[in-house]
């Protein structure tokens, strides 16, 4: 770990001032991702601004939806009665992620900004464009079983590992940010994360002088909701692929550099296509890199299955 200085911020303004005043400063929330990366010197901030004491840990009802503070812990959010009743896809996604201990620390804002789990990103003695721009992408012809099949670039084929964000993408969530100059932005979650392109090191639309303050969910869409995560063990494993369904909206996890809204599948379903054809509409652009070829047919199977399941839940709800 590189030596760093630390300060605890008590309000958002002060936190923003603290990160903009100092070069190479970073926020720290639950620390479950950042600290690991600091130990490996993948991240080497010189100054940490602890945001855990900012008053951003509430879940409020607004306009028929929910406003989730950036510091709401993953376990709190998963257990919230309103979330479990109206947004079960989100609760299921959270509970499918990490472990109980990690979820108790992990925050809503930190979860959105967690970094990829690509082995090469973690091992500093191997080339990786995301960690060291221009050094090359080792995964392209290396160990890429966990990697992207949609929206990847020859520069980087990593995936975003979050479960929570996939459910939020299906729920049409918005990320609320505040900048040092006092500007707030509301960024649709589906636009919040970038595709790798030629600059995989820039992962989101968040600017260095911005803080995530909340995630807002609009009222739940009509229809059944399901989160289905496929993984190598029953718990404490990142998704190989995941599917979130909320009414007519579908998002995929484990397939791209961002939570992937399957808009082509949605459109095909709207125009009456069978589930398997709707899945194929999205997968037409999919590309495997060897180790992850299996994800393409796996996603097809899981979209079909999850649609059936959500339809069944909808019926359940209707018939009480």
């Amino acid at each position: 770990m590189r030596p760093f200085t630390y300060e605890r911020a008590s309000n958002a303004r002060a936190a923003l001032r603290a990160v903009t005043d100092r070069p190479n400063a970073k926020f720290i929330a639950g620390g479950t991702n950042l600290i690991d990366l600091m130990k490996l010197q993948v991240e080497t901030p010189a100054h940490l601004v602890d945001v855990n004491h900012l008053p951003l840990a509430n879940i409020e009802e607004v306009d028929g939806g929910l406003r989730i503070g950036a510091l709401v812990r993953n376990s709190t959010l998963a257990g919230d009665r309103r979330v479990r009743e109206k947004y079960p896809v989100l609760s299921e996604a959270l509970l499918a992620g990490a472990s109980g201990q990690l979820r108790n620390k992990a925050t809503t804002g930190g979860n959105l900004l967690q970094r990829t789990r690509c082995f090469y990103f973690y091992n500093r003695d191997t080339p990786c464009n995301k960690r060291e721009p221009g050094s090359g992408c080792s995964a392209l012809e290396g160990l890429n079983r966990m990697h992207a099949i949609l929206g990847a670039s020859p520069t980087c084929i990593a995936v975003h590992p979050s479960d929570m964000a996939v459910a939020m993408a299906a729920l049409d969530a918005t990320v609320e940010t505040l900048s040092a100059s006092g500007e707030t932005r509301n960024i649709p979650l589906t636009d919040f994360h970038n595709l790798p392109g030629v600059e995989p090191q820039t992962e989101t639309q968040l600017r260095p002088d911005e803080l995530i303050t909340a995630v807002t969910l609009p009222p739940p869409p009509p229809g059944g909701q399901v989160y289905r995560k496929v993984r190598d063990r029953a718990s404490y494993a990142f998704a190989l692929v995941s599917v979130a369904v909320a009414g007519g909206r579908i998002a995929l996890g484990g397939v791209a550099h961002k939570p992937w809204r399957a808009t082509r599948t949605e459109a095909a379903l709207n125009s009456g296509a069978a589930p398997v054809d709707a899945a194929d509409a999205e997968l037409a652009a999919a590309k495997g890199y060897g180790g992850n070829d299996f994800k393409i047919p796996l996603v097809r199977r899981m979209i079909v299955r999850t649609l059936t399941q959500s339809a069944a839940r909808e019926t359940e709800v209707k018939h009480g």
Partner: peptide
């Protein structure tokens, strides 16, 4: 244990990447 043959290195060198059963298994 996964090796990258180009580098001769074990790559999944932590317990997030090297799986053993979790309690749920």
């Amino acid at each position: 244990g996964l090796i990258d043959e180009r580098y001769g290195k074990f790559m999944n060198n932590d317990l997030a990447g090297y799986h053993v059963p979790a309690h749920a298994d």
